[in-house]
């Protein structure tokens, strides 16, 4: 999200240039999340899995919890993977140098 309250060279201010509007978008997304979580209480799901006591695809709130944990672990894992996998941006453009990897 925007941390910079900058103007374009033309000086025109856009709707998202204001931090307050960015906050509005943020809270609107949270509101949508809450609504979808609330929807879980109003219909019955047919559970296919017995694992987790049927919570996985039949319970309330599994998707947001799993999504959050998954995304969290993804970022943590990718951070560690950078050390091993990431190459400089010009890696594939460089001429061969002896002994470099």
């Amino acid at each position: 999200m925007a941390h910079h309250d900058h103007r374009t060279p033309g000086g025109k201010r856009y709707w998202l240039d204001s931090k307050r509007n960015v906050a509005k978008v943020f809270y609107a997304l949270i509101a949508i999340d809450v609504l979808w979580l609330a929807a879980d209480f109003f219909y019955k799901k047919k559970a296919e899995f017995e694992a987790l006591g049927g919570w996985a695809d039949g319970g309330i709130g599994f998707y947001p919890v799993y999504g959050f944990v998954g995304a969290f672990l993804l970022v943590l894992a990718a951070k560690q993977m950078r050390r091993v996998l990431m190459r400089p941006e010009d890696y594939y453009d460089r001429e061969e140098r002896s002994g470099s990897s």
Binding site: L85, M86, R87, P88, E89, D90, Y91
Partner: peptide, 15 residues
């Protein structure tokens, strides 16, 4: 392999 300027968000301009 994925390539990206290391560390900082501002990319190095090695090229």
């Amino acid at each position: 392999l994925p390539s990206r300027s290391s560390g900082s968000r501002i990319p190095s301009t090695n090229c």
